[in-house]
Design a protein around this nucleic acid. Sequence first.
DNA 1: CATGTTATTCTTGTATACAAGAATATTGAC
DNA 2: GTCAATATTCTTGTATACAAGAATAACATG
Lengths: 217, 217
Amino acid sequence: MTIRSADRITKELEHLVFTGELGDGERLDEIKLAKRFGVSRTPVREAIQKLATSGLVTQEPRRGAFVRQPGPVELMEMFEAMAELEASCGRLAAFRVSDDALVLLQTANDKCQAALDQGDPDLYYQENEHFHHLIYKASGNGFLEQEAQKLHRRLKPFRRVQLHLRGRMKQSMCEHREIVAALVEGDGDRVANTLRDHIAIQGEKFHHLMANLKKGT
Amino acid sequence: MTIRSADRITKELEHLVFTGELGDGERLDEIKLAKRFGVSRTPVREAIQKLATSGLVTQEPRRGAFVRQPGPVELMEMFEAMAELEASCGRLAAFRVSDDALVLLQTANDKCQAALDQGDPDLYYQENEHFHHLIYKASGNGFLEQEAQKLHRRLKPFRRVQLHLRGRMKQSMCEHREIVAALVEGDGDRVANTLRDHIAIQGEKFHHLMANLKKGT
DNA sequence: CATGTTATTCTTGTATACAAGAATATTGAC
DNA sequence: GTCAATATTCTTGTATACAAGAATAACATG
């Protein structure tokens, strides 16, 4: 055993939650999971503890841990918080971004454009993710960068879907261009506002999707 | 046993770290801690896991967990992130704050003033904390509120000390008044900027304190 | 005496055992 | 047949046992 199996299990469980194999409200049966991963309950429990502190599951004493997918309200709140976080990163980046980082941002954007031209939302998301990580990093604040990445990861499944909406990729691309332009100018407030709107729109689009989905059923 | 002892131990350990009884870099000896709290290693380990995910300790495989107090750089980054978070809360609060909440903010501020008049930094800090929590709540975003509180807790020991600097309490009080004034006006940007500066100053003051402390030794 | 090597001890990480509360099944009364 | 009370089973939470790597001590060698 070269690595803590508890850590491996943490990631496996996260994956199960993200892919939806462990659905909302489902109980995490320690024994079943232990058998599934071929370990004892101990590392499974440690993994569950970690998920609990990062908010993916809730623990009820003597009853176990349950998957806790955010509801519509919490999701909106998380998107709003993400918008604010990214705005903060962008504002700081406007003052601190290096020429090298700007070049990287441009190339990331070009790749987004390529994905858009190919009409490939998954590829677009991937390149788009890279673009945003670059902005977090350009904030020059490692702590903020980590926090932004954490929330980004948590929202990842929801940010993805809205890209499949008609015209959304193209619109997103325009917003990216404006963000970079404002960064080049060094206009902190404009970067912040553009980024904030960029994320807020994602939240709204996602909201629309959800509403339509419910209507459909 | 009415409550999970692991949860109790988590809080006890947090306390030990905050009070400094467990100093920076110190190893958390599972056996010693287990004896100290009168339990087995299992709940102690679970508690340590939690501290690790919240960032208070780092774990090295097969070597144990070590207290990880943030260094000067990380501390500055955390203060900056806190400033941004509070600014975000304030901006949202400017649009959403209720009249009731404004009254609460005013009374909280009056209590700060009273503490200032008594020249009691500890009391001031307490009332000041309440003031800030009210602003987090007034953001109308529960998720953001939680995140802000989390970081606030983490910075608590450092926010405290700078209040003992000559004239800092009075200055802080002025800033509070301006924040409320901007909230009443509903001027989001002004609230955000004032709050951001309010926290940023705390970071700077703390920095000065640290610098002087080092010079002294 | 310094240093490199081996042996021992210690600590973590995992598995298993046990205690106690929660959920479920069984039984009895109406 | 339905509902309440009790008995049983199941699951979590904690303690202990064991395995393996890390730190340390003992020792040999130059």
